[in-house]
Amino acid sequence: MTMANSRSKILEAVKLSQPAFSEIITANIPQSKENLPAKFAGASTNVGGKFIQLNTLEELKSYIAENFKRTGIILSDIVELSDFSVLEIKEMDPHSLANVELAILRANLAVAENGTCWLPEENAIQRVLPFITQHLIVVVSNDAFVPSMHQAYEIIDQDIYGYGVFIAGPSKTADIEQSLVLGAHGPRSMTICLIQELNNKEKR
């Protein structure tokens, strides 16, 4: 079969062509660890996100009530929000998520330099959910903040996941004359909510 032949052909050609082995020489890049939530808030706003700080998940409930349509489907696996959200998401056909109005998910990491949040598969619940929902709220705790992508990957490096995504703000495009439009194919808005009371143990 051509495929098997091509494999050895390509590898052979690469071996013949590649330059002499050279070690990686990279320098360390220091990062300041100060004021991470504030830095994150700024960066997140720059990428079209909205950053809020609340004390409890109870407060988040009223925030949602004030700011989002309660008529649409709301999904979350956060038990405290169960009185208005559907919890059993994992087994659903991804196509059935087409009409989700709001998803409230937890993120393990929030990167201060660029306002991005890390959601491995178990946090996304369904891979398509953070994309197909019209609006997205991501809940983070105080200890989720890291200065830059370098520290983020130091943590992620140990993680086992089948899928994971960094999300920075709502889905967007500027393909038409460089005019920024939020809500390209995915969420039209993204709110990142720091809950003061939350800590890592409670999240799991």
Partner: peptide, 13 residues
């Protein structure tokens, strides 16, 4: 500072 999505695909769904 980063694209909106940086998706890591390791295993199929």
């Amino acid at each position: 500072p980063i694209t909106t999505y940086s998706s890591h695909f390791k295993t199929p769904r």
